[in-house]
Design a protein around this nucleic acid. Structure first.
Length: 570
RNA sequence: CGGGGCGUGGCGCAGCCUGGUAGCGCGCGUGCUUUGGGAGCACGAAGUCGUCGGUUCAAAUCCGACCGCCCCGACCA
């Protein structure tokens, strides 16, 4: 591909809005352009990378028996109403009406469609197990997109669905996908780790997320270097040792002017935050008012809280007037004297004597609160976030917290969807059973961005061979003056094309500085320079982008590199 | 949805406070020179100053509304 003809331009300056290296480099090097918030075009170079990433994913899905197909982007809303998700999912599910006033949705994922297809096609246990997948555009109206391609609203996702006879079969499929993901991310040049994860809107019995560590990551991971424990903070547990034993003392009101935060309260009273209780107020999607009580030195984990409450539609923070209406006072809140509220208490609070809690009066707290002596919890559960340095749940070593970007996920779905849609098979035993499903996603664009995050330097992108849009970048310097240079460069370009390994050929009439700078910015694994100087030195200058290693080789060696993708060993 | 910031040729920005008919660098076009690390000179093209409304003799500039984009937050009161 001649650079003079490529639909592309590189930018000399960093785009103002790009913060993450991947975003900045993909814009500057002419791989992508933004159309709207969280909506991007892939220019030819970006599309080629995306295609190569897809191909790696495809090969690994095919290897475990996945069958590629394609399902629609636009679904009749009926389908989503039948599964119940039409009502459970918030505004991120785009809803609209067609010309006939029929409710439609833009698909976020395809469990419903697969379940419907199974009902249609699978009759007998002889047709299972079975695994299908597709690459398809998703639109999710995220509340806030960010980070270039990392979190977008429209994106291509590989989603796969396993269909098994029973849980044991699902375990096998799940394992196969787990291993396919490990191979996939390794080939993509990503150092992904699998962490246990919440099942969220997918339901089901288990899930892993494949995470790439990154400071801009939106997920927090709880990791133990000692035993290898790794889970998303949303579900991670740590050991929470008993506090020192104390005899329960009588409650006592204490004036605490302006102490509306735990820090202020602990400072004012001269006690550690672990001797206080914190109240957080929420309203569930199904309309319940919730007061969550954790110790002052911990934070409420909303995911755990949602799961304990079995709250459909999630949680939102309560408004001040809603809190007051339940007999509580924001900043000085506790369940003492509360009414019409679901009181959820962290189990550590149950074990912690004589805490300072809110008095539900402005400027007042209560000392020596003991549960359940002083108020009655509706639910007791483990509802806090793991903290840096907490003891690992399995081995007791201090855990660390790291940010991660989710590059893929795998879910054990179970039978929720197939029961909802009546997707049954007739078993060997003559009885009808629901098909057991799993679902497995990889976001293609996000992986492209993560690859750049992991493979770049101060000069530009450094593509791994497996996903580079072109294997080599051929730079001709001074071709206008020296016919020999033009002749050799043209010939090498044609030779690569004839060998079925098209390369990028910078035939532009630009200064050497521009061309060499662009070559490093664009990031092809090999940079070949043809110039009067290289000819005088014996042929073609070859630079390995990854290592920066540079040497001049003979024309035959350069030809071999273009034909085979590697330099013949001297 | 809450808070903050920004919107001026393709890109990066100044001008706005203190209203007076739009500017810089890069890029782009033509010509000449130059040619291994973002070349030089000359000439040139290109902007409804996000949109709508208001104030004013006069608005990029002041006021209001709206739209768009970016960042933080949407978790503890």
């Amino acid at each position: 591909m001649r650079l003079s003809e490529l639909f592309f331009t590189s930018l000399r300056d960093d785009p103002a809005e790009a913060e993450m290296p991947s975003h900045r480099l993909l814009l500057r090097a002419g791989y992508v352009r933004q159309l709207g918030s969280g909506i991007y075009s892939l220019l030819p170079l970006g599309f080629r990378v995306s295609q190569r990433v897809e191909q790696v994913i495809r090969e690994e899905q095919d290897r475990i028996g996945g069958q590629e197909m394609e399902m629609p982007v636009v679904h009749p809303a009926e389908v989503w109403k039948d599964s119940g998700r039409y009502y459970k999912i918030g505004p991120e599910l785009v809803r609209f009406k067609d010309r006939g006033e029929r409710d439609m949705v833009l698909a976020m994922t395809h469990e419903e469609v697969v379940a419907l297809l199974l009902r249609d096609i699978v009759q007998s246990y002889r047709q299972l197990p079975m695994m299908v997948y597709h690459f398809q555009t998703k639109f999710r109206d995220e509340p806030r997109s960010r980070g270039g391609l990392i979190r977008v609203r429209e994106f291509v996702m590989k989603d796969a669905y396993s269909c098994d006879l029973d849980d044991a079969g699902l375990d096998v499929s799940y394992r196969m996908q787990y291993e396919a993901y490990e191979r996939t991310f390794k080939r993509l040049g990503l150092d992904a780790i699998a962490v246990g994860a919440d099942v969220g809107i997918m339901g089901g019995s288990g899930a892993h997320e494949f995470m790439v560590l990154n400071e801009y990551g939106e997920d927090t991971l709880v990791l133990c270097d000692h035993c290898g424990y790794a889970e998303n903070q949303q579900i991670a547990q740590v050991r929470k040792p008993d506090p020192p034993a104390e005899a329960a003392l009588p409650m006592e009101d204490v004036a605490t002017p302006d102490a509306t935060t735990i820090d202020a309260l602990a400072t004012f009273l001269g006690v550690p935050s672990s001797k206080t209780a914190k109240a957080a107020f929420f309203v569930t999607g199904d309309g319940r008012f919730v007061a969550a009580i954790v110790r002052g030195d911990h934070d409420v984990n909303e995911t755990k809280l949602v799961n304990v409450l079995k709250a459909t539609g999630g949680l939102r923070p309560a408004q001040l007037d809603e809190i007051k209406a339940r007999g509580m006072e924001a900043g000085y809140g506790s369940p003492i004297g509360a009414k019409d509220a679901v009181i959820v208490v962290d189990e550590l609070v149950m074990r912690s004597p004589n805490l300072v809690a809110g008095a539900n009066r402005v400027g007042w707290h209560v000392k020596n609160v003991n549960v359940p002596r002083d108020y009655t919890p509706d639910l007791v559960a483990e509802i806090t976030n793991a903290r840096e340095g907490d003891p690992c749940i399995t081995c007791g070593s201090p855990v660390k917290l790291r940010n991660g970007i989710e590059v893929g996920n795998i879910f054990k779905l179970g039978t929720d969807f197939t029961i909802a849609f009546g997707s049954m098979y007739l078993g060997e035993d003559g009885a009808r059973h629901p098909i057991v499903m799993g679902s497995y996603g990889i976001g293609v664009g996000r992986n492209v961005a993560c690859i750049v995050e992991a493979h770049h330097d101060e000069k530009g992108i450094v593509w791994p061979d497996e996903v580079a849009p072109y294997a080599a970048h051929l730079v001709a310097i001074g071709a206008g003056r020296d016919p020999k240079v033009a002749e050799l460069a043209d010939r090498l370009h044609d030779l690569a094309k004839d060998a079925g390994r098209e390369i990028l050929y910078d035939d532009r009439d630009e200064s050497p500085g521009v061309k060499l700078t662009d070559a490093e910015l664009l990031g092809m694994p090999w940079i070949l320079t043809v110039s009067a100087r290289s000819l005088a030195a014996g042929g073609v200058e070859v630079t390995r982008r990854q290592s920066g290693e540079r040497r001049t080789v003979g024309v035959e060696a350069a030809e071999a590199l273009l034909r085979t993708g590697s330099l013949p060993t001297a």
